[in-house]
Design a binder for these strands. Structure first.
Lengths: 194, 194
DNA sequence: TCTTGTTTATAACAATTGTCATAGCCTACA
DNA sequence: TGTAGGCTATGACAATTGTTATAAACAAGA
């Protein structure tokens, strides 16, 4: 295994996730992904013999893993802290990219799979959403929120964050994030205390 | 002016909006848009001399117009009724398309404009979001919600709905919409009554 | 050193993309 | 009837797409 910094394979996956988060799924070509990772095109099909579908699926999972790790860690300080960290994570991506990048999981979710077949990448996206919701719902329940309300709130939080990030990109402003953050924070606080 | 049902121009715009809502911006080609509208490719560049950029921009505005019209009408019965109608509108699109279609405005928002230039379509998307937020915030204020809270709530609602539609597509289920609907409804009710 | 398996390097393929040009049709008005 | 202008039809262009094939370079173990 040849290493140069991270492995070439990992660089390709991470680069694909970044490019998908900017341009969307279909506008991200394997050639440019390889170039972006300074890996040759041949290597891409060596590492991902099932082609683009496989690469995209792994990119979604990759994004899911590190965001989930971050969310789980921050939730140890309670649901409000977890929410704020989750928001901060996406805010950084949006701001650092000058409003050009967002969430690759969302990007994959809104591009129709090719005719007839169900997409592995889409299933991976659903899993990531479910993981986030699960972590948030668990934390809320641990802080006294009844199960059904916790599940509803978790879904609302994930959906609102994803939608807000997209709105920030369109408006080229972080104001939507500020507003959503404020409302979600008071909402969680009320649920936990009530 | 040759009419066949709606004008060819309008058919092209509406078809483009539908295709973008399924496949995303970059995967929607002008050729297929024309075919989908049963219009010749030549006509597309006749009606939209500025090319794809213009067509996409008009598709976003088109979507914005009829959703805004619907939202404004339903809000006359109060903010909760408006919310429910807004949710029902998107639910119908998601369900009728077997979880393949979503919101074209969101789709345009998350695909990076070509290097350096700012995209007219992206600006149109921002306008649509702002229009929805404005209508919701106005209604909330009219029902006694203080201005800042109304604005925050309006942003949260739009973001949550957009995010939820995407989650429904990934999961191939309307459950996210059910959960979000429930939470947003009680949230609005509390704000209006409080 | 020789050999085996991983990685890279190139080239080619059919298909599709946005865009443009040009020639024809076809309707409406004089 | 004729003529102008909106619309259609068709074809071409360079570029890019996903994918496959093939051969060279390379690494490490025998």
């Amino acid at each position: 295994m040849t290493e140069s910094g991270a492995s070439a394979r990992e660089r390709i996956v991470a680069g694909a996730a970044d490019m998908i988060s900017r341009r969307g799924l279909n506008a991200t070509s394997i050639r440019e992904t390889a170039k972006h990772a300074r890996a040759p095109l041949g290597s891409t099909y060596h590492y991902f013999p099932e082609g683009k579908q496989q690469l995209v699926t792994e990119a979604v999972r990759y994004t899911g893993e590190w965001t989930t790790r971050s969310l789980r860690k921050e939730l140890q300080a309670g649901p409000v802290a977890g929410l704020l960290a989750f928001l901060a994570l996406w805010r950084k991506i949006v701001v650092d990219s000058d409003f050009r990048a967002g969430c690759p999981v969302l990007a994959v979710s809104i591009e129709e799979p090719a005719a007839g077949q169900t997409s592995a990448a889409l299933a991976a996206a659903a899993d990531v959403f479910a993981a986030w919701e699960g972590l948030l719902a668990d934390s809320l329940r641990e802080h006294g929120v009844e199960p059904e309300r916790a599940a509803q709130l978790a879904t609302l939080i994930v959906a609102a964050v994803e939608g807000t990030v997209a709105m920030c990109r369109a408006k080229r402003s972080t104001e939507p994030l500020d507003r959503t953050a404020e409302q979600l924070r008071t909402l969680i606080r009320a649920a936990v205390e009530g």
